[in-house]
Write a protein that binds this DNA or RNA. Structure first.
Length: 421
DNA sequence: TCTGGGGTCCTAGGACCC
DNA sequence: TCTGGGGTCCTAGGACCC
């Protein structure tokens, strides 16, 4: 049987873990730049705050309804996530970390019945991390996601755990499950299916395989089989390397000048190259893109992107920066108000393969080692290259940031003192 | 004033090869 | 009458996920 463990309102729960006073209050967490709502507590949901709500439009409501607002604090969430995953590893030999707040477990040879075991998992995670989770258990991954949806939806009744372990229960659950909520059904597929009169997951399982294959590709077909109870997906090995590495951002303001945009692009490339070396990969291509503000129709709209090839597979910040600047020159257009830009590295290979080519100036490798070492020791972005603005680091609006409870020593001491008080 | 960011996989179609 | 056919690789774009 597969279990999926999913943290409830994860970012909000991370903030609450260190603020017990907020445990029953409405809380939301905002995206980068304090742009829109990306996590809501149950209380905030009840007050009608939708997912993705633009913060500036809801400012008044936040105040009126006394909703506590946080800027996103990714180092905190990342750290809390690893703690949750560590606890999970005690419960199953195989764990697939599926996202920052979810993991699949393969459950076999259990000491107790499966539902009791699922409750034990939930209880232990809360005990060790203060993070509430929901658990769905079923014979296939897609069905376990359905079970998890039920556990979340009927929290009182299920106590956060739902198991699909009989054919009768599978059918009953799928007949209730709205097709739009099924894992793997997005907007496009939902539209196509509802045009056909399909409203529930069960009706979807009754469609002919040829129709599903034709209209939803082999992915849709796999999903259909999985929902029928025939497992087509196994646990993924989550140690495998990424196939693309991206750094993309919206800006706090719009930029018009080439030099300003270039400085941002260089910083994005720098950050990508760092991530690249961390997973010991090299890249062959970089994609650079620019966008105007799509919400501002009074200004000229512009979007452009280009793929640039590296002279050889590389992990050197200097080579990558040169390449993306070349790409930027191709797509930069004057008199545009730029709001968003990004760099995506692709064609990733392991560094070992790269050494076969050995085209790179050998000095780069030792230089990169020193740069990474210094940034590691003295804090990210202390070492920069000449085309980066020395005054700034990331420049993001973060008006409601919580302290670095788990990763900064002074904060840890402070929290402990408060607890003692 | 003000609307996120980082990923995966699949398919169709073009370029190119023999 | 009749104007090949099979294959690979790459890329853009679309679908989806959290």
């Amino acid at each position: 049987m597969y279990a999926i463990i999913d943290c409830n309102s994860f970012y909000v729960s991370c903030e609450r873990a260190f603020r017990p006073d907020l445990r029953t209050k409405p809380v939301v967490v905002l995206s980068n730049n304090d742009g829109c709502v990306i996590s809501r507590s149950a209380e905030a949901k009840l007050l009608g705050i939708p997912m993705g709500a633009p913060a500036f439009k809801f400012k008044k409501i936040f105040k009126e309804k006394q909703i506590k607002v946080f800027s996103s604090n990714y180092s905190l969430y990342g750290d809390m996530s690893s703690r949750v995953m560590e606890v999970l590893k005690q419960f199953a030999p195989e764990v697939e970390v599926y996202s920052i707040d979810e993991a699949f477990l393969l459950l076999e040879n259990l000491p107790v019945d499966i539902e009791t075991y699922a409750h034990q998992i939930k209880k232990t995670i809360f005990q060790y991390t203060n993070i509430p989770v929901s658990v769905g258990v079923a014979p296939t991954k897609a069905l376990s996601k359905v079970a998890n949806h039920v556990a979340k939806k009927f929290q009182q009744k299920t106590k956060g755990v739902f198991v699909i372990d009989t054919e009768e229960r599978r059918v009953k659950t799928l007949k209730w499950m709205p097709i739009a909520e099924v894992w793997g059904i997005g907007r496009g597929h939902h539209k196509r299916l509802s045009d056909l009169g399909i409203g529930t997951a069960y009706e979807f399982t009754q469609l002919s395989e040829s129709w599903v294959k034709k209209n939803m590709s082999v992915i849709g077909l796999r999903l259909q089989k999985d929902l029928k109870g025939e497992a087509t997906m196994t646990l993924d090995d989550d140690t495998r390397d990424k196939k693309a590495i991206a750094t993309t951002r919206s800006f706090e303001y719009t930029y018009k000048e080439y030099e300003e945009v270039k400085e941002r692009i260089v910083t994005f490339a720098y950050s990508c190259a760092e991530k690249l070396r961390k997973q010991k990969s090299a890249c062959t291509h970089a994609y650079v893109f620019l966008r105007s503000n799509r919400h501002d129709s009074s200004k000229e709209q512009y979007r452009a992107g280009t793929m640039v090839a590296m002279p050889y597979p590389t992990d050197s910040t200097l080579v990558i920066v040169n390449a993306v600047v070349k790409g930027l020159k191709e797509i930069f257009k004057a008199n545009i108000h730029y709001k968003r830009a990004g760099v995506v590295l692709t064609g990733l290979t392991t560094t070992k393969q790269v050494q076969l080519f050995a085209n790179e100036d050998p000095k780069h490798e030792s230089l990169m080692k020193i740069m990474d070492g210094l940034n590691d020791k003295f804090g990210a972005h202390k070492i920069k290259i000449a085309s980066q603005d020395l005054e700034r680091t990331w420049k993001m609006r973060q008006e409601h940031l919580s302290p670095q409870y788990t990763t900064k020593l002074s904060e840890i001491i402070e929290v402990n003192c408060n607890e003692r008080e």
